[in-house]
Design a protein around this nucleic acid. Structure first.
Lengths: 129, 129
DNA sequence: CAGACCGTTGACGAAGACGTAAAGGGAAGC
DNA sequence: GCTTCCCTTTACGTCTTCGTCAACGGTCTG
């Protein structure tokens, strides 16, 4: 019933190597079940992996992503939840900074784009007509 | 008249190490003037450095940041400008993807924040009153 | 039963981004 | 003149994130 994957299957589907998958496991980012000696990944593992990959695209290190994944463990006592809340809020703050950086960079690149575009249009007029 | 900096001054001001500054120079990201044997950084160098740091916060490698900085060289022949335009547009595309990832992550974290907050509020009612 | 595939662990390698120690030059203060 | 301080270069160390063998086990097929 439930969709399962081998290392190779899951790796190929998400466009990474099996080696990377095993590495993430060593680093504590994933913990697939075993059948005998072989890894078996569930949909949950897959979802977790997608979070990992998104974290990477955002430029986070595996250690940071590990912390980030911990934020999804909403269980725990009051003290733990307070702690979790703090970490979530810090992460949100970091992401806000990152968004600022992103917007600023996009703005500047768009300016350059316009500049270069018009410069090109001026040099070879009529090409756009 | 113009504000100048030594390695240590500039490093401290921007919260990095002098080692990093020299390293960026070796990697071709910075090219400060010399007075005798000593590096002297201008405001322009400082601005460039801030771009570098922003790139790092966005998760780019130094090599990518180097390319990015080259995008600011709007001079050059038509062929070069066409090339530049392409690179700018590719970079913008990458950043768009990154923005998507960013928004998705922020959304999820905010959900968690609400979840944990209300959970805490429920457990200790009246604390908020 | 041999070979073809998957899958496993382990060791070594490699690139990127610096940290850190070593050894020395120049100027400034006492 | 000697120390102190800042700066220099060179070189080696380190941590991360895998890639790349190497050597091995299990299973299926012919």
């Amino acid at each position: 019933m439930e969709q399962l994957y081998t290392v190779n299957q899951l790796a190929e589907e998400l466009g990474i190597t099996p080696r990377a998958l095993r590495f993430y496991e060593v680093k504590g980012l994933l913990a697939p079940n075993r059948v005998g000696n072989n890894r078996v990944y569930t949909k949950r593992d897959r979802a977790r992996l997608k979070l990992i990959l998104r974290g990477k695209r955002l430029g986070f290190s595996l250690a940071e992503i590990r912390e980030y994944l911990d934020l999804y463990n909403v269980d725990g006592g009051v003290e733990q939840q307070r702690n979790l809340l703090k970490r979530v809020q810090k992460r949100l703050k970091d992401l806000a900074q990152q968004r600022e950086d992103l917007e600023a960079t996009v703005c500047e690149l768009k300016e350059i784009e316009v500049q270069v575009s018009t410069s090109l249009a001026d040099r070879s007029p009529g090409k756009d007509a």
